[in-house]
């Protein structure tokens, strides 16, 4: 097994493989798309850092062979902010889940977007806290069952692209894990765009979300995405709420210019 060489092995820590993600999970696909985008962007690997928080997606940093850090719960963006401020040459990528970035790290997400700190945020949204046993998350759709909502979820979910746009992100896109080429292109564009860029990845959770809701395995979720996702670029972000087992609107929603934090700081100092 050690003699076989996959073309993506250069960016992966092969001593830690096989990874812990379950059969049919979409986080491995996010890793594939990220590696493909890195290959396409031809960035210097010494100048790219990956930061991730806690959760299934939090393991991402451990598998990517770049300078990476696995922070405490929800604090991936503050750590990335510190990295960027201390060494503005770095390209900082935050890869984390919906529970980590929007729930516990929600405040950090909003304020990093407001300051427009130059970083790429890849938010893997699987509608549930998967690693801790399938609790209800801020993105769980209405009426979906989880282990802590056994009679169905009645809390309205949050809309990640709308939060990002209204807080001031300069690039917002959403794709499902199945749209792998478009997702790769979006990550590539986000890597090349200065400012706070958000890419949301709708990912199947085959072990908790789909098992409790009886939606089949990962392949069945992928088939559902294939039939029910609609590409609508530049859709107003307040239309992007995801209802339980209804149509998912994907695409690139925001692409605009704002001065980044480092630029404003230098301008303020008169440099």
């Amino acid at each position: 097994m050690k003699n076989v060489k996959h073309p993506m092995d250069f960016y992966l820590r092969m001593d830690r493989m096989p990874h812990i993600w379950c059969t049919g999970c979409g986080i491995g696909l996010t890793a594939t798309a990220f590696v493909a985008a890195m290959e396409k962007a031809k960035l210097d690997t010494n100048k790219v850092c990956v930061v991730s928080g806690i959760g299934c997606t939090g393991r991402f940093a451990g598998y990517i062979k770049l300078d990476s850090f696995h922070t405490t719960h929800g604090r991936a963006i503050p750590f990335a902010t510190g990295l960027k401020l201390a060494n503005p040459e770095l390209k900082v990528v935050v890869v984390s889940g919906d529970g980590d970035l929007i729930s516990i790290g929600g405040n950090h997400f909003i304020h990093a977007a407001r300051r427009n700190i130059d970083m790429v945020v890849i938010c893997v949204n699987n509608f549930i806290y998967a690693m801790t046993g399938g609790q209800v998350a801020p993105t769980t759709p209405l009426t979906a069952y989880t282990t802590t909502s056994p009679y169905g979820n009645f809390e309205p979910p949050s809309n990640i692209p709308q939060i990002a746009e209204s807080s001031g992100a300069v690039y917002v896109a959403r794709w499902t894990a199945l749209h792998i080429r478009r997702l790769t292109n979006s990550i590539f564009e986000a890597l090349n765009k200065p400012g706070f860029t958000v890419v949301e990845v709708i990912s199947p959770c085959a072990q908790y979300y789909s098992r409790i809701n009886r939606l089949g395995d990962g392949l069945d979720m992928m088939k559902f995405y294939h039939e029910n996702s609609q590409i609508k670029h530049w859709e107003p972000t307040d239309n992007l709420y995801i209802d339980y087992q209804k149509e998912i609107i994907v695409g690139k929603f925001v692409d605009r210019e704002r001065p980044t934090y480092s630029e404003s700081y230098k301008k303020w100092l008169g440099e």
Binding site: H6, P7, M8, D9, L12, M17, P18, H19, W21, C25, G26, I27, G28, L29, A31, T32, A33, A36, L178, I180, R181, T184
Partner: peptide
């Protein structure tokens, strides 16, 4: 290369 891109486990190329 679609199988390569769609493999979550880096097992096919």
């Amino acid at each position: 290369h679609l199988c390569e891109m769609l493999c979550p486990d880096f097992a096919i190329y």
